[in-house]
Computed example of a mutant assay.
Amino acid sequence: MKILLLSRNTGAILPFLVGASCAKAPLDGFRIAYIDDAQQSFAGAAFVEAERAALEALAGHIVPVTARGTETRRFDRMLADVDAVYVASGSTFALLDALRASGNAAALVERVRAGLPYIGASAGSIVAGPDVTPACLMDDPADGPALTDYAGLALIDQTVIPHADGLLPPYPPELIQKTLDTYRDSHALTPLNDDQALLMDNGRLSVIRSEP
């Protein structure tokens, strides 16, 4: 599998895509599915616009995808027609709820396990792990009202804790520390600062730099 999990900054994306897809920079004609379910309640927010603009500056063509309400066969066809998938930041529980309720979680996992490069950002990074429970202090579990458990996509065996440097106002150092103290004994956690990313390369996980 080819996986890049971001906290916030996008600097690691281009080298990842070039390496994972044998693409050439600039990524002319390159197509990335942008799964936006985590951002549905944040329409028009500055961070949403900035995140999408940052990806558009790197990629040849962004294909907006909303898992909730998209029939699974159509969702799968959309993923079959792109070169990578980007799962955007926002609410971890809204994202997981949407993927589960639509039945599209399994289709996404199957495509990634078959080789489709996966890029996650914040919430999109958290759901890639085995269990999103450690996000309960950072995001609101009520955003996923239909969830009966918090099992993630299990693409990796760690749960990412993004914004671990405490520089982003919604996630101050005290909240990050409380999250780590609460869950480090029960979950395998990987804290990521906003200038870091978690890369899976040949089955091995490593923390790398990801500058703005």
Results as ranks from 00 to 15, higher is better:
S122T: 03
R111A: 10
T133D: 07
T190G: 07
A59N: 08
V87M: 06
D139V: 00
S102G: 08
A146S: 12
R100T: 10
E51P: 09
L155H: 06
T179G: 00
V87W: 01
M138G: 00
F75R: 02
C136D: 08
D139K: 00
D81E: 13
M78P: 04
A94S: 10
L167H: 11
D28A: 15
D165Q: 11
I13P: 00
D36A: 15
G29E: 07
T10K: 15
V132W: 00
A57N: 14
Y34S: 09
T179A: 00
G166H: 01
E110C: 11
A45V: 08
L147F: 05
L27C: 05
A135N: 04
R77W: 09
L137K: 03
L14Q: 10
Q39A: 14
L147H: 03
L116A: 11
E110Y: 13
L155I: 10
D149M: 04
I62N: 10
M138A: 08
R8L: 11
D139E: 04
F16Y: 04
E110V: 08
A123R: 00
S122N: 07
K2T: 09
T133W: 03
T133N: 11
M1R: 15
R68K: 14
A12T: 04
L189V: 07
P15Q: 07
P141V: 05
R73C: 12
L147N: 02
A154D: 13
V127N: 01
A151E: 06
A154N: 15
R8N: 08
I3L: 12
L116Y: 07
A164P: 02
A33H: 03
Y86T: 07
I119S: 02
L168V: 10
A57S: 14
P162H: 01
R77M: 14
A164F: 02
L189D: 04
A94K: 04
D81C: 07
A59Y: 08
R204H: 14
L17T: 03
I13N: 02
A20L: 02
G11A: 10
Y150T: 14
I62D: 05
A38W: 00
G44A: 11
A151G: 09
T133R: 14
V127A: 04
D131H: 04
Q196D: 07
A43D: 06
G60T: 09
S21P: 03
P172F: 00
V65I: 10
Q196L: 11
K178Y: 05
G115A: 12
E49G: 10
R31V: 04
E51W: 08
D149V: 03
A25L: 09
E174V: 04
R204C: 11
D139I: 01
A12Q: 02
A154E: 13
G103K: 05
A94H: 02
L168K: 15
D83F: 11
R74A: 13
V112H: 14
D181H: 06
R184Q: 12
T190R: 13
A33R: 01
T92E: 04
D76R: 15
R100W: 05
L153E: 03
E211R: 15
A197L: 02
G29A: 09
M1G: 12
F42T: 14
L4E: 00
A25C: 06
P117G: 10
D36S: 13
A164D: 03
A12P: 02
V63P: 04
T133S: 15
G144I: 01
P212R: 15
G69Y: 07
E71C: 13
P15D: 05
Y86D: 03
H187T: 03
V85R: 02
D149S: 09
E49W: 13
